[in-house]
């Protein structure tokens, strides 16, 4: 369990331009100026200040905070902002992975928010993203799994998401990549890592994003799905076997 008061104290001690208050719905709001000097590996250091507003949901830390830049410093043509003004820090599963390194509000700020602003400053200066950028929407989710698991096709990525959704981690199952090997001898370690960091929330999110994206292509006949995957999607859609092994610990 997290201790909210201690996390806030820790955050404000380091980032002294920030303040907090509690909304009537007991959501915590952190706002003010976030000043930083960011030093990435092999890239120039950047010092800057952004005016921000962070909303910490009541379900924190199962659900991560949302952040907005309120000083009007981020150009409207910068693509990594949601229509509601919150910043697209990264795909949800990656945010959870990074958050787990230091699971606190300070960790959120230093591990996710400041690198995002660094990326923005760098982009603003040089016109490119220092750490690369993820494609948008469901395509970006699939791209993430494809890269992370070193896959060749989008369909494989969807198979992994469905596997995680339906079984979690099962070392003795056949690997969703289609290699014919057991999971534990194939993509096991990465799959296990993904499984460890997913929450019901992020997994449902990724599945629905990926299926939406896939469905568009499927509809346009750009894609054919292997029978077992189609069946699995059918099972998931009907709610059968749903997250059967989800809470099993390894």
């Amino acid at each position: 369990m997290h201790d909210m008061a201690a996390e806030i104290t820790e955050l404000l001690a380091i980032h002294q331009g920030l303040n907090t208050h509690e909304e009537p719905n007991s959501e915590i709001v952190i706002s003010g100026n976030l000043a930083f000097e960011a030093v990435p590996e092999d890239l120039p250091r950047i010092a800057d200040t952004f005016e921000i507003e962070v909303r910490v949901p009541t379900a924190y830390s199962a659900i991560l905070p949302e952040i907005r830049e309120t000083g009007g410093k981020i150009h409207s043509e910068y693509e990594h902002v949601f229509p509601n003004g919150t910043l697209c820090l990264g795909v949800p599963i990656e945010l959870r992975r990074i958050f787990s390194r230091q699971p606190s509000l300070l960790g959120f700020m230093n591990g996710l928010v400041i690198p995002y602003f660094y990326g923005y400053c760098y982009w603003n200066e040089h016109g490119e993203h220092p750490f690369g950028e993820q494609k948008h929407g469901g395509e970006g989710i699939i791209e993430y799994y494809t890269n992370r698991l070193n896959l060749r096709e989008e369909v494989q990525a969807v198979a992994f998401i469905c596997f995680l959704y339906e079984y979690g981690y099962r070392g003795h199952h056949n690997c969703p990549c289609g290699s014919g090997q057991r999971v534990r001898h194939c993509h096991g370690p990465i799959l296990l890592d993904l499984h460890k960091h997913h929450t019901p929330h992020t997994l449902t999110h990724d599945l629905s994003c990926a299926l939406d994206h896939l469905f568009e292509k499927f509809k346009d006949n750009e894609l054919s799905l292997p029978d077992p995957l189609l069946k699995q999607i059918g099972r998931i859609a009907k709610g059968k076997n749903r997250r059967r092994a989800r809470r099993r610990r390894f």
Binding site: I14, H15, Q16, G17, G32, N33, A35, F36, E37, A38, V39, P40, E41, L43, A47, T49, E79, H80, V81, F82, P83, L87, C88, L89, G90, V91, E94, L95, I98, N110, G111, L112, I114, P115, Y116, Y118, G119, H129, F131, G132, E133, Q134, K135, H136, G137, G138, E139, G140, C209, D212, H213, E216
Partner: peptide, 24 residues
């Protein structure tokens, strides 16, 4: 405007890539 004289120094290592909303 509240800027600490010495902003905290943050090392960036293996950061997330910014994502984005679905174009649709």
């Amino acid at each position: 405007p509240a800027t600490p004289s010495q902003p905290p120094r943050v090392t960036i290592s293996r950061p997330a890539r910014p994502w984005g909303p679905n174009a649709r």
